[in-house]
Design a protein around this nucleic acid. Structure first.
Lengths: 134, 134
DNA sequence: TATTGTTATACTCTATAACTATA
DNA sequence: TATAGTTATAGAGTATAACAATA
């Protein structure tokens, strides 16, 4: 058994499902991911670096994703109050709505998938996924 | 907790690690993934459709990936003995070697990541990942 | 000197729809 | 009619290196 192969398959499969569920938003996977990560944060806000870490990517990858979310009116960039190198990205009200829809679709997909598994399976899986993310 | 966000992060993070470990192969993530999946199969062979299912993608996505692996001499396409619509892709000897290196790197990455977790955590995680892949 | 984020470039990934060949 | 795989096209994702601004 090679867990990483299961990981890749599950990632691709869930992205397909989410795209189907959320097709009317017209957002590609990376934007859904960024949106949902921001939606989980207090105030829907984060620095670019923090968001890159949360996604498992790099700031250079995020720039384009954030540009498109901003063009769609789902996100705004703000200066950091104390460090003028840092950019804070924050969901707009429309962005908050979209993020909540994405998160709801993710939770629903999880709920259905995990219905027949032991209740603690999700926690075990989360621990493994976090260990693989270090 | 939204497991799918942990899933995306773990996927990105493991791809970065594997790329670093296997940099001398010069293969992008999708090719590493296809290679490892084929390496897990008897004879290193599969139909395009079966491989697409294993990866969680679509045949149309695979065509380009398989083209590049073939150009690199890691893979060959063969006719199916009984259905002339079907293509069988098979690792070459060089492809088998490369696939074994990729699988070894994946297993090593997993071994280190899971060292501090309960022994059955990997099995639980695999069950969850497979449920999410349905 | 180091860090944050962006830009430039080049390549890879992916989806959709249309297509060929075969069943 | 349906299925296996490919092609064409367009857009999205990613890495690397270089850069500007700031710490």
């Amino acid at each position: 058994m090679v867990l990483i192969l299961d990981l890749q398959r599950a990632t691709h499969a869930t992205l397909h499902r989410l795209a189907a569920h959320l097709g009317d938003l017209g957002l590609p996977p990376s934007e859904l991911n960024a949106l949902a990560n921001l939606g989980e944060r207090p105030g829907g806000a984060s620095t670019v670096s923090e968001l890159a870490t949360a996604i498992g990517g790099r700031p250079t990858t995020l720039t384009g994703i954030l540009d498109r979310l901003q063009q769609r009116g789902l996100l705004a960039r703000e200066p950091h109050p104390r460090d003028r190198r840092t950019v804070i990205v924050r969901l707009t009200p429309d962005g908050v709505d979209a993020a909540e829809r994405v998160l709801a679709a993710m939770r629903e997909l999880e709920r259905r998938a995990l219905a027949d598994l032991p209740p603690d399976a999700a926690d075990s899986a989360a621990a493994v996924l976090r260990a693989l993310s270090q």
